[in-house]
């Protein structure tokens, strides 16, 4: 399916999600252009992760509409969204701990293809793709290592590798730099920079040093709603943003 260039990669129309009385996401309308790099900032509890969950379909929004490349996906279950090339990572790594790095990647590679019930061994092509992904996130020396044995940083890298396995058109990273060492951070930054523009990228990130250099547009959320949206230069000097970040502290 070829989207016309002016069709946004992602469009949210008045999207909201309530948990009981709590409106985790209030009423969010935003549009991310195809190929754009978008950073989502905001204090803990602002509803950023919930917004990701609504986009990838982990649970449906209680109000509003989600459109992916012009197609309404509000009611699609999560496995259909993955098949329409939405890749994401999780704030807390959700990996297959009992399996090897290779097996984790093979599962991710096969999930994007038909024949998910296949009882034939993974093809050479599947294995090659899994290995290429491992190289991309610098885990190719650990292919046979059980995921439970990986360090925190390696788990974060594997998260990204698995999200890339479906050749996403939209890639969503939830705090990919959280807990990474000073050595790992620049590597992550490089990986994000090297992504081709055929991938639209949305990153939730607390660390402005990671978020601002790569972002075309920054969205700042607080209490479930978007408070400011604009280019990084504007966000850096915006009084509302400074109030939020001074109020809550940049670290969390």
């Amino acid at each position: 399916m070829q989207a016309a260039p002016q069709v946004p990669a992602l469009a949210l129309h008045g999207v909201g999600r309530k948990f009981g009385a709590l409106a985790a996401v209030g009423n969010v309308t935003l549009s991310v252009a195809a190929g754009e790099r978008r950073a989502v900032l905001g204090p803990n509890g602002a509803g950023k992760t919930t917004l990701f969950n609504l986009i990838c379909g982990d649970f449906p929004p209680t109000s509003g509409r989600v459109e992916l490349f012009g197609q309404d996906i509000t009611a699609l279950p999560p496995h259909h969204r993955a098949r329409s090339s939405v890749g994401r990572t999780y704030q807390t790594s959700l990996l297959f701990n009992g399996l090897s790095v290779m097996d984790n990647l093979v599962i991710a590679v096969r999930g994007a293809k038909p024949k998910r019930f296949s009882l034939a061994l993974p093809s050479r092509e599947d294995s090659a793709k899994a290995i290429a992904l491992a190289e991309r996130v610098r885990l190719d020396h650990l292919l046979e290592t059980e995921v439970a044995q990986l360090s925190h940083g390696q788990r974060r890298q594997l998260e990204v590798g698995m999200a890339l396995a479906c050749d996403p058109r939209l890639l969503m990273l939830d705090e990919p730099a959280a807990g990474l060492s000073p050595v790992e951070r620049p590597e992550l930054l490089k990986l994000m920079r090297d992504l081709p523009r055929s991938i639209t990228l949305i990153v939730i990130e607390h660390d402005m040093d990671i978020a601002l250099p790569i972002a075309d547009v920054v969205t700042v959320m607080k209490d479930g709603d978007v408070v400011v949206e604009g280019p990084p230069a504007m966000i850096e000097t915006d009084p509302t943003v400074q109030a939020i970040y001074l109020g809550h502290g940049r670290a969390h």
Binding site: C56, D58, P77, P78, H79, A82, R83, R88, Y90, L94, L95, F96, I107, A108, G111, A112, R116, M162, A165, C166
Partner: peptide
């Protein structure tokens, strides 16, 4: 995660 990767 299995669901998010495209499996039913």
């Amino acid at each position: 995660r299995v669901n998010a990767l495209g499996y039913h």
